[in-house]
Simulated assay, not measured.
Amino acid sequence: MYIAGGQGVFIIIINSFVHVVMYGYYALAALGPKMQKYLWWKKYLTQFQLFQFVMVIIQALINLSVDCNFPKAFSYSFLLYAISILALFLNFYFQSYIKERRKRRESK
Rank of each mutant, 00 (worst) to 15 (best):
I98Y: 00
Q47W: 14
V66Y: 00
A27P: 14
N63Q: 08
K108N: 15
Q7C: 01
F78R: 06
R104M: 10
W41T: 05
R101Y: 06
V9S: 02
P33N: 10
I98R: 06
V54N: 09
L88F: 03
H19R: 11
K103D: 13
G32K: 08
K42G: 04
F78Y: 13
I58C: 08
M35V: 03
I13W: 03
Q7I: 09
K42N: 12
Y76G: 04
K37H: 13
L39W: 01
L39I: 14
Y38T: 06
L79Q: 07
Y38E: 00
S107P: 00
S77R: 04
K72H: 07
N91M: 04
Q52I: 14
S77D: 11
V9C: 02
Y25H: 11
A30P: 01
Y23H: 15
M22H: 06
I12W: 05
I58M: 13
F94L: 11
Q95L: 11
I57G: 01
W41K: 01
A27T: 15
Y23D: 12
I3F: 09
Y2R: 06
L39Y: 13
V9M: 05
W41L: 04
R102H: 11
G32L: 11
W40N: 06
Q7G: 14
V20K: 00
N69M: 11
Q95V: 09
V54G: 01
I85G: 01
M1S: 04
L28R: 13
A82S: 13
S65C: 09
F92P: 01
I12K: 09
V21D: 05
I13P: 03
A73I: 15
V66C: 01
K103E: 06
V66N: 00
F78Q: 06
I58Q: 05
A27W: 15
L39V: 09
G32R: 09
L28G: 02
Y38M: 07
D67S: 12
S65F: 02
F89Y: 14
